[in-house]
């Protein structure tokens, strides 16, 4: 079943699910970074242009430093996120899901020169679309991945407030953790669903709730409350 996520198992037996990020969102992140670096560089160039040829020399050095090391510094010291990546909820990691180090970051950013060819990152874009994990050539060489890592927001929106008043009950039969999560998700996402659809879904679980229609829905809410452990 296609899931577009990559599952890695750590030696400790923990399953990590990674969602490699594709060209569009990465392109937008790169645009933001480009605005920052070029904007900053141009401002510096203008400021230094009054200083004649020495100023030009210094600003060229500055340009060099910013263009090559801005991504490296942010990636290694900023948890794999340049400002652009942070804005788009992305993160660079090693392909084995460990944090990216200096070597990998330097390699992947130096190879931008190759990805750039022949113009506008065409090689990188094609490489991303062809490979199964959206890696540009620099990523392939450095063994890195860019993944979706949205910053952790507030907990998901709860269901209608009246849910709490229905009380809680324990699940009548033992169900697996994945199923418990599904029941919880149903209760939490009920605000987005139409009521008919919520009932339609709870009807599917009639074998569990022993009721259909609104009675079944309320019973499933109680079971969800029981799973969550609230009263």
């Amino acid at each position: 079943m296609l899931d577009a996520t990559l599952r890695l198992e750590t030696p400790e037996g923990v399953d990590l699910a990674l969602a490699p990020a594709g060209p569009v969102v990465r392109g937008l992140a790169a645009s933001i970074d480009g605005l920052i670096t070029w904007g900053g560089s141009i401002l510096a160039l203008i400021a230094l242009s009054s200083a004649g040829r020495t100023g030009t020399g210094v600003s060229l050095l500055l340009l060099f430093g910013v263009q090559w090391f801005y991504p490296v510094l942010f990636e290694v010291l900023g948890g794999g996120r340049t400002p652009g990546k942070r804005a788009m909820g992305l993160r660079v990691i090693d392909a084995d899901a460990t944090p990216i180090g200096w070597n990998a970051s330097l390699v992947r950013n130096l190879l931008r020169v190759v990805d750039l060819l022949p113009a506008f990152y065409a090689a990188g874009l094609v490489s991303m679309l062809v490979g199964s994990r959206f890696q540009r050539l620099g990523d392939l060489v450095a063994g890195t991945l860019v993944v979706h890592a949205p910053s952790v927001g507030p907990p998901p929106r709860d269901g209608p407030a009246s849910d709490d008043r229905l009380g809680a009950r324990s699940c009548p039969v033992l169900v697996r953790a994945a199923d418990q999560r599904a029941i919880l998700a149903w209760a939490e996402r009920r605000g987005q669903l139409s009521d008919e659809r919520a009932v339609e879904l709870s009807d599917l679980l009639a074998p569990l709730t022993g009721a259909v229609g609104e009675a079944g829905r309320d019973e499933l809410v109680r079971i969800a409350n029981g799973i969550r452990g609230s009263t």
């Binding site: 296609l2 577009a4 969602a19 990020a21 199964s132 959206f134 979706h148 996402r189 339609e200």
Partner: peptide, 29 residues
């Protein structure tokens, strides 16, 4: 109306917008 989800070949679950786009790209490949 409800499609026959059991025949689905892709795992659909709530995703962020950009994850959804990337899912589409992976599905199209």
């Amino acid at each position: 109306g409800a499609p026959d989800l059991a025949r689905g070949v892709a795992l659909l679950r709530p995703r962020s917008a950009w994850e959804a786009v990337d899912f589409g790209f992976a599905f199209a490949r």
